[in-house]
């Protein structure tokens, strides 16, 4: 039978006689959950998974008192497990990729390719070109260099926020705030342009 939250909390106290059994059970939950959740992720072999699970257990046990009981204990534990595992896998995947190099190679050319969809009407294609020119101009004039760099890396190059933050000497939370501010600035600037909401909806919002 599955342990209740209260049983997990009391059994995972190091002084509990059921401590070892609870650790074994929690390890199994993490093993099963992380193996299934991360099945398609590259770089996750058995050894890496075991290392990650060990790290997660070391993280969870000392901060068990911070569990607020708003969900199942196993959900909370897996949330920490997933975050720890993905952070490690992202780092392994991106640690040798230079942010400056990928920004330099991409630059602002990202909006200049021919992206016309032949199935669109000439009028719709014209509006899309106008909007793309506007977007490119606003990204260049409205954003700071850091905002532009972060936006390019995350949105265009698909780099994880965590890794962009590391290379920019900040953390994921601050980077999200930087990007949020960039989106707010661009939204305000777009709304000031001579474009109707219908133009945007027709060309970009609706699929």
């Amino acid at each position: 039978m599955e342990r209740t939250n209260e049983e997990w909390l009391s059994d995972l106290k190091e002084s509990s006689p059921r401590f070892d059994a609870a650790i074994v059970e929690l390890r199994l939950v993490l093993q099963k959950g992380l193996s299934a959740g991360l099945k398609k992720w590259q770089g996750l072999n058995k050894e890496t998974l075991e290392d990650i699970i060990q790290d997660v257990l070391v993280k969870i046990v000392p901060k068990i008192d911070t569990f607020q009981g708003n969900c199942r204990f196993t959900t909370w534990a897996l949330k920490i497990g997933v975050n720890t595992a993905i952070t490690e896998l992202r780092h392994r995947r991106w640690r040798d990729v230079s942010l400056d190099e990928i920004i330099e190679s991409g630059g602002m050319n990202f909006l200049s390719g021919n992206m016309s969809n032949p199935s669109y009407s000439p009028e719709k294609q014209t509006i899309q070109h106008l909007l793309m020119d506007t977007l490119k101009r606003l990204i260049t004039t409205e954003l700071t260099e850091r905002q532009r760099k972060a936006l390019m890396a995350v949105r265009i190059q698909g780099m994880p926020l965590e890794e962009v933050a590391r290379q920019m000497g900040t953390n994921r939370n601050s980077l999200y705030k930087l990007l949020h501010d960039a989106r707010l600035r661009l939204k305000k600037a777009i709304l000031k342009e001579d474009l109707t909401p219908e133009d945007l909806i027709d060309s970009f919002i609706s699929s």
């Binding site: 190679s105 991409g106 630059g107 050319n109 990202f110 909006l111 200049s112 390719g113 992206m115 969809n117 899309q128 909007l131 793309m132 977007l135 949105r155 265009i156 190059q157 698909g158 994880p160 949020h180 989106r183 707010l184 661009l186 939204k187 777009i190 945007l200 970009f204 919002i205 699929s207």
Partner: peptide, 25 residues
């Protein structure tokens, strides 16, 4: 996330996602 980006170019879907992201901020 795993979409492969070609250097210096992007597809319309990525542009759409970016504009949607901006306009729904």
């Amino acid at each position: 996330r795993n979409k492969k980006m070609q250097k210096g170019s992007m597809d319309m879907d990525t542009i759409k996602q970016m504009v949607r992201g901006i306009m729904t901020t």
